[in-house]
Design a protein around this nucleic acid. Structure first.
Length: 271
DNA sequence: AGAGGTACCTGGCAGC
DNA sequence: TGCTGCCAGGTACCTC
């Protein structure tokens, strides 16, 4: 499932193929995503040139002449380039045909994704306006995490997965970061020491950066026939390893549900 | 304001 | 083999 590193990988992979190119026409085959694709989108985009690709949280922002496409891949979304137009399938919901014959295709079997259009500054869009800091930027610091967690009783895993606090940390990277920092996912956020905040911020950064680096190695496969951008399989230490031995202490990993999400951790290494 | 729960959707898999 | 039923997950939004 696309998390922040995947979106960043997609942004970097698509940028050289899209920037400066013009959308000849667009086609929407399925409007019913998380929110409806605007009915007039295809008409709006025709003839506009792509200026830049940005990322905010897990949103990909494609700047055009007259506004910005806001794209979210949800759970199962994929965005990839085809060298030539080809017949679209059941889960291909939207296509952007470029003047150089490439086709940017949005595919999303579970339809948790979104394609929206705004003519205002994208960061002012309601979906983006109240997002917290980017985990890889300076304003996501130990001091910041320490300050906003004070007196908060919610479990730290749920806390860091909340977008107003810090963006882009989904279930997988939350579990991995907490393991790397040696902090129990169940620990009330307000009980983290300043030192633990330091470790957690560093762990989140390291895990995300490693995943982005791993994604970079698959970029050469980004434009291909089968439409698989080649999501990297990161080395996961706890996620998906319930009841398997901890890589550090060999204690069997514990699996619990938190906020209706599976959570795997080492009860020995994570306090 | 904080905490907790719900909905959306469908492929894949376990169980019968 | 074929059916049913559950699970996975991101995140806006609802309720208490």
């Amino acid at each position: 499932m696309p998390e922040l590193p995947e979106i960043e990988t997609i942004r970097r992979g698509l940028t050289p193929h899209l920037v400066g190119h013009t959308i000849k026409r667009a086609a929407v085959y399925q409007h019913a995503l998380r929110w409806p694709i605007p009915a007039t989108l295809a008409k709006t985009l025709a003839g506009q040139t792509i200026r830049s690709l940005r990322r905010r949280a897990k949103y990909l922002l494609i700047d055009l002449d007259q506004g910005t496409l806001i794209i979210h891949l949800g759970m199962s979304g994929r965005l990839y380039l085809l060298k030539h137009a080809s017949k679209h399938g059941t889960h291909d919901h939207c296509e952007f045909f470029l003047e150089d014959d490439h086709v940017l295709r949005f595919t999303d079997p579970r339809r948790f994704g979104a394609i929206l259009w705004t003519t205002a500054a994208a960061n002012e869009h309601p979906l983006l306006a109240s997002l917290g800091p980017e985990p890889l930027e300076k304003n996501f610091s130990a001091d910041y995490l320490w300050r906003i967690t004070r007196k908060r009783t919610v479990a730290i895993k749920l806390f860091i997965m909340t977008n107003q606090h810090v963006v882009g940390i989904g279930n997988i990277y939350a579990a991995e970061s907490l393991f790397a920092a040696g902090i129990s996912p169940l620990k009330p956020a307000g009980e983290l020491t300043h030192s633990q905040c330091t470790h957690l911020v560093a762990a989140i950064r390291n895990v995300l950066r490693a995943a982005i680096r791993a994604g970079g190695t698959t970029l050469k496969d980004f434009v291909n026939g089968d439409g698989k951008p080649g999501y990297f399989s990161q080395q996961l230490h706890v996620y998906g390893r319930a009841a398997q031995p901890c890589i550090r202490c060999h204690t069997l990993l514990t699996s619990i549900a938190m906020g209706q999400r599976s959570t795997v951790y080492c009860a020995h290494c994570q306090k």
